[in-house]
Amino acid sequence: MEYYKYLRQYVGQKPIILPGSVVIILNEKSEVLLQKRHDGNWGLPGGLMDLGESFEEVAKREVFEETGLVVENLKLLNVYSGSQYYLKVSNGDELYSVTAVYYTSNASGEIKIDYTESERMQYFGMDNLPEKLTSEYREFIVHYIERENSAKIR
């Protein structure tokens, strides 16, 4: 059983802290891989931590489960947490997310969509992100772009 589901048995819908990871996967054109979820929104591949996992292990496992890709040479962009990452999801569950955001251009394999998680995968140019990209994922990608632009200036 996934850890958060185990916790929910005891706390119900009260707020809990949920750690997880997402990955900005870049292709050779520096486009970012996004997944379209069943709610119509786009996001980055990733998910929640299970007991005993590191943030990097979560990132690699979730990317593989959701996309079929194996990612290597992950670089940590940032860990995002705090009151602005409070969510109340459609079923009424409340949570504060703690998200480690990685980036890499080292992905191998063929994209295989897990249709229980997503309905589509697509690479997007950084200046052509979909309108229905959720705000937190857009923030992560903007921070990545700012970091890359800052590195080029140096």
Results as ranks from 00 to 15, higher is better:
1 M>V: 13
1 M>N: 07
2 E>F: 13
7 L>R: 08
7 L>W: 10
7 L>I: 14
8 R>P: 07
8 R>E: 10
10 Y>C: 08
11 V>R: 10
14 K>E: 13
15 P>F: 04
19 P>E: 06
23 V>S: 05
24 I>V: 10
26 L>V: 06
27 N>C: 04
27 N>I: 02
29 K>F: 08
29 K>I: 01
30 S>K: 13
31 E>V: 03
33 L>N: 01
34 L>K: 03
34 L>H: 02
36 K>W: 02
39 D>C: 07
39 D>Y: 06
42 W>K: 04
42 W>N: 04
42 W>G: 02
43 G>Y: 06
43 G>V: 05
44 L>K: 02
44 L>G: 02
44 L>C: 05
44 L>I: 04
45 P>E: 01
46 G>F: 03
46 G>L: 05
47 G>H: 06
48 L>D: 12
51 L>H: 08
51 L>I: 14
54 S>L: 10
54 S>F: 07
55 F>E: 15
56 E>M: 11
60 K>R: 12
60 K>T: 01
63 V>A: 03
65 E>M: 05
65 E>T: 02
66 E>V: 00
66 E>S: 04
68 G>M: 01
70 V>M: 11
73 N>C: 09
74 L>F: 06
75 K>V: 14
76 L>A: 11
77 L>D: 07
78 N>H: 11
79 V>Y: 05
81 S>L: 11
82 G>N: 04
83 S>Y: 13
83 S>R: 13
84 Q>D: 15
84 Q>Y: 10
85 Y>K: 06
86 Y>I: 07
86 Y>A: 09
87 L>S: 14
88 K>C: 12
89 V>W: 14
89 V>H: 13
90 S>G: 09
92 G>Y: 09
93 D>F: 12
95 L>N: 11
95 L>V: 10
96 Y>A: 02
96 Y>D: 02
97 S>L: 15
99 T>M: 07
99 T>I: 09
100 A>C: 06
102 Y>I: 03
102 Y>A: 03
103 Y>S: 01
104 T>E: 00
109 G>R: 00
109 G>S: 04
113 I>N: 01
114 D>S: 05
114 D>P: 00
115 Y>V: 10
116 T>R: 14
119 E>F: 05
119 E>W: 03
119 E>Y: 01
119 E>D: 06
119 E>P: 02
121 M>T: 06
122 Q>T: 10
122 Q>K: 15
122 Q>C: 11
124 F>C: 05
125 G>Y: 08
128 N>V: 12
128 N>H: 13
129 L>M: 10
131 E>G: 13
133 L>M: 09
133 L>T: 06
134 T>I: 15
135 S>F: 11
136 E>P: 08
137 Y>Q: 04
139 E>Y: 12
139 E>K: 14
139 E>M: 13
140 F>Q: 01
142 V>Q: 14
143 H>T: 09
145 I>N: 03
146 E>V: 14
148 E>D: 12
148 E>G: 08
148 E>F: 06
150 S>C: 09
150 S>M: 13
151 A>D: 13
151 A>M: 11
152 K>I: 11
152 K>S: 15
154 R>A: 15
154 R>M: 13
154 R>N: 14
